[in-house]
Simulated scan of single mutants.
Amino acid sequence: METTQFLAMIQAYTSIGIGLIIGLGALGACIGIGIMCASFLEGAARQPEMIPQLQAKVFLLLGLIDASFIIGVGLAMMFAFANPLLSVVTK
């Protein structure tokens, strides 16, 4: 196959991978945040005096969950705009 065909295949498979990275990352983050916030609301309803301690932990975990998704988006953007796989074909 020609070089242009290899480049097109790499770009096509990379774009599928980018969609999976962002889509599954968003899905996992949304499910995790939903489960965590539901548990926070249940805990707050059972013991209202614990709300300040629980709320601090919820906000910390929200940031960590979102950070993992943002790292995935950053990796996907690296593959979208500076794909290291394309340099292998040109050699």
Rank of each mutant, 00 (worst) to 15 (best):
M1V: 01
T3R: 06
T3P: 00
T4K: 07
Q5Y: 00
A8Q: 13
A8Y: 00
M9H: 11
M9T: 13
M9E: 14
I10L: 12
Q11P: 00
Y13E: 11
Y13C: 10
Y13W: 02
T14V: 05
G17T: 06
G17A: 13
I18W: 02
L20K: 05
L20E: 01
L20V: 14
L20T: 12
I21H: 00
I22M: 04
G25V: 07
A26T: 13
L27W: 13
G28L: 07
G28M: 12
A29N: 04
A29Y: 00
A29H: 01
A29R: 00
I33D: 02
G34S: 12
G34N: 10
I35C: 03
A38K: 09
A38E: 13
S39N: 15
F40Y: 08
G43V: 08
A44H: 03
A44L: 01
A45I: 06
A45N: 11
A45S: 11
R46Y: 03
R46K: 15
P48M: 10
E49F: 07
M50H: 09
M50V: 05
I51L: 09
P52E: 04
P52V: 05
Q53Y: 09
L54T: 07
Q55K: 15
Q55A: 14
A56Q: 13
A56I: 11
L61A: 08
G63H: 10
G63C: 08
I65K: 03
I65Y: 03
F69V: 15
F69G: 01
F69W: 13
I70M: 15
I70L: 15
I71G: 04
I71V: 15
I71A: 12
G72M: 13
G72D: 08
G72T: 10
G72P: 09
G72N: 14
V73C: 11
V73S: 09
L75W: 05
A76T: 10
A76Y: 01
M77R: 02
M77H: 03
M78P: 01
M78F: 10
M78A: 13
F79M: 15
A80D: 01
A80W: 04
F81D: 03
F81N: 14
F81M: 11
F81L: 15
A82D: 05
N83E: 02
P84G: 05
L85Q: 05
L86P: 00
S87Q: 12
V89E: 06
V89F: 01
K91A: 01
